[in-house]
């Protein structure tokens, strides 16, 4: 019993409680919530975000942030549309998009590691910059030029009822867990997040780790952009606009500290489920997207407010106890 209680006191336990209540409320509200179709559908609708959330875990653990991910999604999707529109073969275009992602991410990493600029500023600039490039490519058009096999890949299930995008997500999830928990690279990520200088003075190539992370972030965001384009079958300049809010919320709500060095992927999985189920539940109850965004914003604040309040109350009670003695 006490083990369960302790578990509940932890952040993961708390998230599990919330998740269970969200599931309960949703399934009471709507019969279709628990159906396999709806489950797959709700994952599919947000699969781009949760894929990027996986790499964001690494970046925030490393005490950095990447605000440019959503713009990179937009850029890669638009680049895909533009390339195909101007006659590039599909496969080559896909490769080029991933390359754009790698280059964009490395560009971020370059300023962060070579000039030692804060990632907040660099990626904020590129949030504007990548989006700007996306708009340069497609201006205010909507490009719908993809071959049917590509659209089918984005929209039809390939393994039982499961579409490719979700399989990719699951594959990346397993990879992320393994890297973070069991590899030397994962441990470097934690150490750098706790104290970058300790890592530096231990002869760890801090810049290389950061460079890898930001480049990976670019590639994965570009991949997410491609999947997004396949799912929608068309691209527009504002694709993925302000997705970074959802993505960062998922990571922070999952208990990853914004100051780096602590948190795990388990918590993030729980928080992904919470965010997706909440959005799905709201959609099923006909609540509009704008309000959903507001709820996510509130959730982001709560995810840090609650542990803070908990600590304040704890401290306050301790002080009271001391005074009483």
């Amino acid at each position: 019993m006490s083990i369960i209680l302790n578990k509940l006191k932890s952040w993961e336990g708390f998230l599990s409680l919330i998740l269970i209540s969200v599931i309960l409320v949703n399934s009471l509200n709507s019969e279709s919530f628990l159906s396999i179709d709806n489950q797959i559908n709700l994952f599919e609708l947000s699969v781009e975000k949760i894929i990027v959330a996986l790499i964001m875990v690494f970046i925030i653990l490393n005490a950095e942030i990447d605000l440019s991910v959503a713009s990179m999604m937009g850029l890669s999707a638009c680049a895909l549309g533009w390339l195909v529109d101007s006659g590039t073969p599909m496969i080559l275009a896909l490769g080029l998009c991933l390359l754009i992602g790698a280059m964009g991410g490395a560009f971020n990493g370059y300023w962060i590691t070579v000039f030692k600029l804060p990632s907040l500023v660099v990626t904020l600039a590129m949030l504007i910059g990548f989006r700007g490039l996306a708009r340069v490519l497609v201006e205010d058009r909507s490009i719908r030029v993809f071959p049917s096999w590509f659209e089918a890949l984005g929209q039809q299930p390939i393994l039982g009822p499961i579409p490719l995008s979700i399989i990719i997500f699951l594959g990346l999830l397993i990879l992320a867990v393994i890297i973070l928990k069991f590899t030397g690279f994962g441990r470097y990520v934690y150490f750098i997040g706790i104290n970058q200088n300790v890592a530096l003075y231990s002869g760890i190539n801090v810049s290389r780790v950061k460079m890898i992370l930001f480049t990976a972030s670019g590639i994965i965001s570009a991949l997410a952009g491609i999947l997004f384009a396949a799912r929608l079958g068309a691209v527009r300049g504002d694709m993925g606009l302000s997705f970074e809010l959802d993505i960062i919320t998922m990571v922070l709500l999952g208990g990853v500290s914004i100051f780096g060095g602590s948190g795990s992927i388990n918590g993030v999985i729980l928080s992904i489920l919470i965010v997706l189920y909440l959005r799905n539940g709201m959609s099923l109850s006909n609540i509009t997207g704008h309000i959903q965004t507001g709820v996510i914003g509130g959730l982001l604040i709560l995810s840090v407010l609650i542990p803070n309040l908990q600590k304040m109350i704890h401290d306050f009670l301790n002080q009271r106890r001391k005074q009483l003695q």
Binding site: I65, L120, S242, L245, I248, T249, L252, I258, T288, H290, I291, T293, G294, V295, I296, G297, G298, L299, L300, I301, V304, L305, N308
Partner: peptide
Amino acid sequence: IPAIIVTLGTMALYRTLLVE
């Protein structure tokens, strides 16, 4: 709460408020 989190959140919240 770190300002970046608060205001990223309220950026969405105030916008929602406006929509509502």
